[in-house]
Design a protein around this nucleic acid. Structure first.
Lengths: 163, 163
DNA sequence: TATTGTTATACTCTATAACTATA
DNA sequence: TATAGTTATAGAGTATAACAATA
């Protein structure tokens, strides 16, 4: 317990486990306050379309790690809610191109504001050093987690897939 | 942007936003590797029962922020999967008492190991200072977030409810 | 024929409302 | 009657498999 003989990642992971759950609970609480209320998959789909306007259904399904028919159904509901536009592809008429609507752009803006508010409410009560440590630690975590060239990457590419 | 005139929580929150999403993706990936595969709600239910063995259905529903009938259905499936025992209450025969099974205890152990492994794989590639910062920042975040006596708590009690 | 999407069907998760059993 | 739980019904989310349309 006192010496460092090898990788001690798992020990730190244990120390961080519960705290990470708390951060995630705060982070995700913003979604539930969105109006209109968004489910997790719906939000994920909007974020994918936002990052890749004009993406087709297969691309969306791949990003969301779901099969084509599931993505099709999800889009049915997003279109019905006015959050996504489904336009026929101009080059290949088999494809459809997906776009955000003004309504969903506003929704995402509001969601991000809310998320920063709820996180910020906690941050405001932390010490400056604690805030700085969290920002530094999370940013390095992200950089390392996104580094696909690193050894020991899980075969599935967990991180890239989920974002 | 250079001076600090008031609460800067929101600015830090913006800086942390994406990184939190990455942490979430890594943290939750453990669940999907569980055998038998567990859905999010099923895992949440097991964790509640683990923390409060013998809890009744209303208590479970309250912890999960769902209504009674949803908890009843969820338990149907957990009992069918052999992950929960449903025993009639001895004092009041209207109630039922919920318990983990040996099978679900083993499953939770494995899940926690997996989660610590996937987090540990990232931690092992971070700098020691980065790891320390993350541990420190997250722990302070958790302490502050769980402090219900603080002002500015969202009315819903987001954090306690979700854990 | 190969590829893009949709539809039929089924199971999980959740909610509302009606119902049963016990206190 | 009040409370604990179940069941009927419905909609979202997801998967498999069968289908339609376009290349």
């Amino acid at each position: 317990m006192a010496e460092h003989h090898g990788p001690d990642g798992p020990q730190h992971a244990a120390a961080v486990d519960d705290a990470a759950a708390t951060l995630l609970a705060v982070w995700d609480s913003a979604r539930e306050q969105a109006v209109p209320r968004l489910s997790g998959p719906q939000l994920s789909a909007l974020l994918v379309v936002e990052r890749a306007e004009g993406i087709n259904l297969r691309g969306l399904a791949a990003e969301l790690r779901m099969i084509l028919s599931s993505a099709s159904r999800l889009c049915d509901r997003l279109v019905a809610s006015g959050l996504v536009d489904r336009e026929p592809g101009r080059a290949d008429r088999r494809e459809i191109a997906l776009y955000l609507t003004p309504s969903s752009r506003a929704l995402l803006d509001n969601l991000r504001s809310t998320r920063r508010e709820v996180l910020g409410e906690v941050f405001d009560r932390m010490s400056p050093a604690g805030r700085a440590a969290l920002v530094r630690g999370l940013n390095e975590f992200q950089q390392v987690a996104m580094d696909t060239s690193a050894p020991g990457q899980p075969a599935g590419g967990v991180v890239e897939d989920a974002l």
